[in-house]
Amino acid sequence: MEKGILVYALIVTIAAAITLVLSDGGTKAELPTYNIGDEWVYRSTNDITYTFHYKVTAEETIDNEDSYVIETSYDPPFLGINSGETKWMKKGTGDTMKTQMSGIYTGFLFTRTQTYSYQYSGAEKWPIEVGKEYSVTRTQTYTITPPYQTGTETKTSTVKVEKMEDVTVPAGTFTCFKEVYYDEDGNVWFTLWHSDDVKRYVKTINNETGETTELVSYSIKEESLAISGPTGLEVGEEAMFTVTSRSSPVENAFVEVDGDTKKSGADGTVTLVFDQPGNFTVTTTK
């Protein structure tokens, strides 16, 4: 049997603007991956106009969960007492696990620490797709020191992904998923427009307070993909290739060879068969 030599691309860069995944004829937004240095600037307007600057500064493990560390700064100081906050976001869900802020109130330095837990029903948040509906109960526990003060707040929302639409904000025009949050009485209390292009929301409206937040600018790093697999095969032999990013498997990556394209599975793998001898280049993109 003749031998075929297989050549494949080891490193491929993801185009930052191509992040929508087409699957089964529908458009979905997958859970985004952040990189250290990614940053977003928002402007929030109600009675006072604030500028919020979010930046991914580190990756840490807290409570045995891998998380992103996001530093936030406010201008002017939020509520006149706080100019910054640290947020820990769980990688596996995108949910905020913990926040911590410090400031000066009535002449005294204070620290407010908040932890969060979530319970989903009906469906998980990710992937985001038009027509999805689910309920989420968020429990928030806060501690303020000094003086010592603690409390717990719980809110249940029903979230409906209504449609995709173009939204124009100071940072530009983006195709977004419109997500509407309903309270337990069925009233709309929050509306959010999520864009895969920026890996976050580009606009929110708090329908209870009238506060509107819009994206002013952003800077996100391109991802790098690696693909590994055999370099020599028999004609007709199955070959398994694995797509990874920072040593983690990448699902729904496009793997192409000789004009044919397949998508990687949840474990980052895809199986290919070569029916004739020759030299081939296998590439991956997302």
Rank of each mutant, 00 (worst) to 15 (best):
T242M: 09
T106G: 15
I48Q: 11
D267I: 08
D38M: 02
D196K: 12
Y50L: 11
T61I: 11
N46K: 13
T231N: 09
V180E: 00
E162D: 04
T204D: 00
T19I: 14
V169C: 03
W40S: 11
T261E: 01
N207R: 00
T154C: 07
V161W: 06
K203E: 09
S219N: 13
T204W: 03
T61V: 15
I104W: 11
V250Q: 06
V250A: 01
W189A: 02
G4E: 11
Y134H: 06
E30S: 09
T49I: 05
A9C: 10
T86Q: 13
Y120S: 12
T115L: 11
T281W: 04
V136C: 05
K163N: 09
E153G: 04
F274N: 02
F190P: 03
A123F: 04
T269A: 07
T213M: 04
L233V: 04
Q149D: 15
E251Q: 09
E234V: 14
K262G: 14
T99C: 14
E256M: 12
G80Q: 04
E124H: 12
E214I: 07
G26S: 15
E222L: 06
V169W: 00
V159Q: 00
P127I: 10
Y118D: 11
V198Q: 00
Y182A: 02
I48L: 13
D66L: 08
V198T: 12
F78E: 05
V12E: 08
M164I: 15
S248F: 05
L109T: 15
P249R: 06
T113H: 11
N46T: 06
M101V: 14
I11L: 06
Y182K: 00
S247T: 13
P170M: 07
F108S: 15
L31E: 03
G26M: 14
T72S: 08
Y120D: 05
K28C: 02
K262F: 07
E179D: 00
V235R: 01
V202Q: 00
A58Y: 02
L272W: 08
N279W: 06
I62Y: 07
V282K: 00
M1H: 09
G210F: 02
E214K: 03
T111F: 10
K98V: 10
Y54H: 12
R112A: 13
T152L: 07
K155Q: 10
T61D: 08
R112I: 13
G131Q: 01
D38K: 03
Y148A: 11
Y116S: 10
E234Y: 07
A266M: 14
S73V: 05
A9M: 09
S102E: 14
N46V: 06
T106I: 15
N64C: 01
T86S: 08
T244L: 04
T204L: 00
T156D: 04
D267K: 08
T45I: 11
K262W: 10
A17F: 10
P32R: 08
K132G: 08
T154Q: 11
E2K: 13
M97F: 14
Q119L: 15
Y68I: 05
S44G: 08
E162V: 04
N35S: 14
Y68M: 07
S73W: 04
D24H: 05
Y116C: 12
V270H: 01
F108W: 15
I70L: 06
I128Y: 06
N279H: 09
A17Y: 04
S224N: 11
E256N: 09
F108N: 15
N207F: 01
T212M: 03
N187L: 00
R43W: 07
G122A: 12
K90V: 15
T285S: 01
I104K: 12
K160A: 03
T141E: 14
A239Y: 02
V136S: 02
